[in-house]
Amino acid sequence: MATKPMRIRAAAKDGVTEVKALIAHEMETGQRKDANGAVIPAWFITELSVSHNGKVVLASEFGTAVSKNPYLAFKFKGGATGDKVAVSWKDNKGESRTDEVAIG
């Protein structure tokens, strides 16, 4: 299945950049059953990282406790208007996606 694009916003202010990312993902826990009683297989993001101009500023491990379509907001030191911020994730099915945005 094709992955859906993320919505990322990044804004720099007084030397600190705030990143807000809305990630489209099912985040299925593997504990739920469908209408026929069959278990819906687990499908969730396992790793997520954010880089600023190619340098990793946030690395994280995700699990089934994270909601569907997760929202992530954080700040890092540095960053200037026009710099690139890229968010990438990998899930337990081996799918991955990276989206990039310029700091505004």
Partner: peptide, 12 residues
């Protein structure tokens, strides 16, 4: 409200 996932649906 800061990260309303409706945005993702609206994009579709």
């Amino acid at each position: 409200a800061d990260g309303n996932p409706s945005e993702l649906v609206a994009a579709e």
